[in-house]
Amino acid sequence: MAHILVVDDDEQIRMMVTKMLERDGHKITIAEDGHVGLRLFQAEPPDLVIADIIMPTLEGIEMIKTMKQLRSDIPIVAVSGGARHIFFEDTLCLAQQAGAVATLSKPFTRVELTAALLTALSD
């Protein structure tokens, strides 16, 4: 099982993802924004990162880029809320260019989360 860092500014979603992933036997670290995410990324190096792209303090794309610079082999799943950027497929595309190996659009189901995780871990 993997150590997963979950970065999302929405508390309910952090709780939900944590519960889902813990139920599957993973170890979870949570961060409420990009800065905390980067700090925890270095303090407790995870096997995988699930990152929301649109967050108030540090945009997810920037965070993903920095994480990839620090550790090029880290698998990252980018999550999009769908609509602050109208063309959210483009945003997910940007995340992939920044180094995310899999993407998820909110609202996602448990099966979709698991599938994205498997893609990222097997990459």
Binding site: V17, I54, A83, P107
Partner: peptide, 19 residues
């Protein structure tokens, strides 16, 4: 504008229902 907020809410509703 509202879809972003809405999708966050729906994500929790769907996820917690599944759990």
């Amino acid at each position: 504008g509202i879809a972003h907020e809405f999708n966050n809410l729906l994500c929790s509703m769907i996820g917690f229902s599944e759990l």
